[in-house]
Amino acid sequence: MTLSRFDLFSPERLDEAVALLKEKGKDTFVMAGGTDLLIKRRHQVIHPRTIVSLKKISGLNRISFRSGKGLTIGATALLGDVARHRTVLRIYPAIAKAAGNTANVQIRNMGTVVGNLCNASPAADNAPALLAMNAALNIVGPQGKRVLPLEDFFLGPGFTALQPAEIVTSVFVPMPLSGSGATYLHLSARGRIDCSAASTGVALTLKGPRIDKLRIFIGACGPTPLRMPKTEKILINQKLTKTLAVRAGLQASKESKPISDVRANEDYRSKMVAVLVRRAILEANKLARDNK
């Protein structure tokens, strides 16, 4: 069977892009970097008839920061640009790290953070840290604009809460509070190039020596990135010790739902969740103490 042939549209305005998606309907896909979309076409997972590229929409590749408000990463901002961005490195190091650890150099020069989210892989490198930091998506569609917490976006492998003809225009991350720290840790068999076999994003805020606010997510160990509420409960209002971090890691391991696949088996993943969560909590706690 030959690969699908498609029409390519590169509108210069968002409303044109939404109108095109609505008009073309079935087998129409939005493309940012194309590094997932074109592979899926090649592997015949999808058969696009129409592709709407976002690259010519001006301003959509912007990475902007407003002190006191937060960081906005546009839909076509490249992974490599996010990873190297000075403000992101200084104020959102976990997000820079996740972007810089996605795939390889060439893919980071083509692919985007928002595209990585919209592809909705359970292993998406950029999801756990953004989720932990309470990110939200700016979405535009036929009914206008809406804001959706990233936590409500992932529905299953490859499935999101996006409605037909909707486009994610950017991801917004609130300004971290003083006394807070966030980390992203991941493991993969072949270093950076491979998809993560297990990953975690942790963000916490201290009040005095105790953990006041905390969000823990793990990636690649369930159908979507998963929040770990029981693990969070063990830690909240507590002063973090090594013993407590070990206990939290073991709880996260119980809460995760890994499967066995080509990247790792279930047993290994469960054990690694305990290790990653333990390390990430200790690291985030240290960053939070330094950030007072």
């Binding site: 194309g34 590094t35 592979i39 690259k55 490599g80 020069n109 083509m110």
Partner: peptide, 19 residues
């Protein structure tokens, strides 16, 4: 398939020529 586009390395196999 690496080539340099506007000063950056990319994979030419995942790049549509029209773009």
């Amino acid at each position: 398939c690496t080539v340099i586009v506007d000063g950056r390395s990319i994979s030419s196999c995942l790049t549509l020529a029209v773009e």
